[in-house]
Amino acid sequence: EQRVMALYDFQARSPREVTMKKGDVLTLLSSINKDWWKVEAADHQGIVPAVYVRRLAH
């Protein structure tokens, strides 16, 4: 499974989004949309801005 790391803090503004802190490692579920990526963090799935995360090497 692909992982991403948060580059910045992000506060969810809707139930579809995921709140994350800089340095958090999340599971990447989908990167089809270039602006918003779907991730999973602590059993919560949602979207985060793609520019706020970076793919981690396997």
Rank of each mutant, 00 (worst) to 15 (best):
D35Q: 04
A41V: 05
A6S: 07
L7G: 06
A12R: 09
D35V: 12
R13C: 09
A6V: 01
V4T: 00
S14T: 12
D43E: 08
S14P: 02
K34I: 08
L56P: 08
W37F: 08
D43A: 10
M5L: 13
P15F: 08
K22A: 05
L7M: 12
K21G: 05
V48C: 07
Q11M: 10
D24H: 05
Q11K: 15
Q11S: 09
S30G: 12
A57G: 14
N33L: 04
R13W: 03
I47G: 02
R13V: 01
L56W: 00
M5F: 05
M20V: 11
D35M: 07
S30C: 09
Q11E: 09
W36Y: 12
V18F: 09
A41H: 15
T27Q: 10
L26S: 04
L29Y: 05
L29K: 13
S14F: 07
P49V: 02
V4E: 01
L29H: 08
K38G: 02
L29D: 05
A41Q: 10
L7S: 01
A12M: 01
V25N: 08
E40K: 14
P49S: 07
W36H: 09
V4P: 00
A41K: 13
P15K: 13
Q11T: 13
Y52R: 07
Q11I: 08
V53E: 09
Q45T: 15
M5P: 10
A42E: 12
S30D: 13
V18E: 02
R54S: 06
V18P: 04
M5R: 09
P15C: 08
R13S: 11
L7K: 11
T27M: 00
E17K: 08
P15Y: 15
T19K: 05
V18M: 09
K21S: 01
M20Y: 01
L7A: 06
H44V: 11
Q11D: 06
I47S: 05
Y52N: 04
D9M: 01
S14D: 14
A6K: 03
W37M: 12
P15W: 03
S14V: 05
V48L: 04
Q2V: 09
A42I: 08
A6N: 08
V39G: 04
A42T: 07
V4G: 00
S14N: 13
T19A: 09
S31L: 09
N33E: 12
E17L: 02
H58G: 12
K34H: 14
V25H: 08
K38F: 14
P49D: 01
T27A: 00
L7Y: 04
W37D: 05
R3F: 13
R54E: 10
V4I: 08
A6C: 12
R3Q: 10
A41P: 05
T27N: 10
A50P: 02
A57S: 14
V18S: 07
K34M: 07
D43N: 12
A12L: 00
G46R: 06
V18G: 06
L29R: 03
D43L: 01
E40W: 05
D35P: 01
K21W: 07
Y8W: 10
D43I: 09
K21A: 06
K34L: 14
D24M: 07
W37A: 01
S14R: 09
W36N: 08
K34V: 03
A57R: 12
K38R: 12
R16E: 14
D24L: 00
A6I: 07
P49E: 01
K22E: 02
D35S: 13
V51S: 15
E40D: 09
I32G: 14
A6T: 04
Q45G: 03
A42C: 11
A6Q: 00
Q45E: 13
D43F: 02
H44Y: 02
K34A: 10
S14L: 01
V48Q: 05
V51M: 14
L26G: 05
V4A: 00
V4C: 07
M5G: 02
E17H: 05
I47R: 00
T19P: 06
D9E: 00
S14Y: 06
W37I: 15
Q45A: 11
L7Q: 02
R3W: 11
W36R: 01
D35A: 06
T19L: 09
R16A: 14
L28M: 00
K38L: 15
A50K: 05
A12T: 04
G46M: 00
L7R: 04
V53T: 01
M5K: 11
H58W: 11
K34W: 00
A42S: 11
Q2P: 01
V53A: 03
V53R: 01
Q45H: 15
M20Q: 10
Q11G: 03
L29E: 00
S31E: 15
M20W: 05
E40M: 11
V48R: 06
R3Y: 14
V25S: 01
R13P: 05
D24C: 05
H58N: 14
P15R: 07
D9W: 00
I47F: 15
V53K: 02
S31Q: 14
W37R: 10
K21M: 06
V4W: 00
K38E: 14
D24G: 01
T27W: 00
L28I: 13
D43W: 05
P49L: 01
A42G: 15
I47V: 14
M5D: 04
T19Y: 06
H44F: 09
N33R: 03
S31P: 12
L7H: 00
D43S: 13
I47Y: 15
Y52P: 12
S14Q: 03
T19Q: 07
A57C: 12
G23S: 12
D35K: 12
R3G: 05
A41R: 13
A6P: 01
R13F: 06
D35C: 13
F10R: 07
M5E: 13
V51E: 10
R13Q: 10
L28A: 03
A50S: 13
D24E: 07
V25A: 11
Q11W: 00
W36S: 02
V51T: 14
V51R: 15
Q2C: 08
H44R: 13
V48M: 06
T19R: 03
Q11L: 06
Y52S: 14
K34Y: 08
A12W: 02
A6M: 01
M5H: 03
A57P: 14
K34Q: 10
E40V: 06
A6H: 07
V18R: 02
P15E: 12
N33D: 14
Q45D: 07
A6L: 01
F10C: 00
D9R: 00
V18N: 06
V25T: 04
D43M: 00
K34N: 09
S14E: 03
K38C: 14
V4K: 03
A42H: 12
R54V: 07
T27C: 05
T27G: 00
K22W: 04
V48G: 00
D24S: 10
A6R: 03
P15L: 04
K34R: 11
P49W: 02
P15I: 08
V53G: 07
Q45S: 13
K34E: 07
R3L: 11
V4D: 04
H58R: 12
L7I: 11
P49M: 03
M20R: 00
V25C: 11
I47L: 13
S30N: 12
V25Q: 04
L28S: 04
G46K: 08
L26C: 12
V25W: 01
A12Y: 06
D9I: 09
P49G: 08
H44E: 10
L26Q: 08
E40A: 14
K21F: 05
D24T: 13
A12V: 01
M5T: 10
H44L: 04
D9T: 01
L26R: 02
L28Q: 02
I32W: 15
V53C: 13
V18T: 13
E1D: 14
L28G: 03
K38T: 15
A6Y: 02
A42F: 13
R16S: 15
D43P: 06
T27S: 02
A57D: 15
E40Y: 06
Q2T: 06
T19I: 05
A12F: 05
A50C: 07
H44A: 12
A42N: 15
M5Y: 06
L28C: 15
V51W: 11
F10V: 00
P49N: 04
R3S: 03
Q45P: 06
A12I: 08
P15T: 10
L7C: 04
R54W: 05
E17R: 03
A41T: 13
Y8A: 15
N33Q: 07
R54C: 05
W36F: 04
Y52C: 15
D24Y: 02
R54T: 12
W37K: 10
A6E: 08
D43R: 04
D43Y: 05
V53H: 05
S14H: 10
V18C: 10
Y8F: 15
M20K: 06
E17F: 06
V4R: 01
H58C: 13
V48S: 10
T27V: 08
A50W: 01
V39Y: 06
S14G: 09
K22N: 07
L29A: 00
G46W: 08
S30I: 09
V4Y: 05
Q45C: 12
T19S: 14
K38S: 10
Y52M: 12
A50D: 01
V25K: 10
L28T: 07
A42L: 14
F10G: 00
A42V: 08
S31I: 15
A57Q: 14
Q2S: 02
L26P: 04
S31N: 10
L26E: 07
E17T: 03
E17V: 01
S30R: 02
S31R: 10
V51F: 14
D9N: 05
V48Y: 00
A41S: 14
G46D: 09
D24A: 03
H58S: 13
W37Y: 11
R13E: 02
A12C: 03
V48K: 06
K22I: 01
S31G: 09
S31W: 02
L28V: 04
A41M: 12
Q2W: 01
F10M: 00
A12S: 02
Q2A: 13
V53F: 08
R3C: 05
T27I: 07
A50F: 11
A57N: 13
I47A: 07
E40S: 11
V18A: 09
V48A: 04
V25D: 08
N33V: 02
E17D: 03
W37C: 09
V25P: 03
V39D: 13
M5A: 06
Q11V: 13
W36L: 01
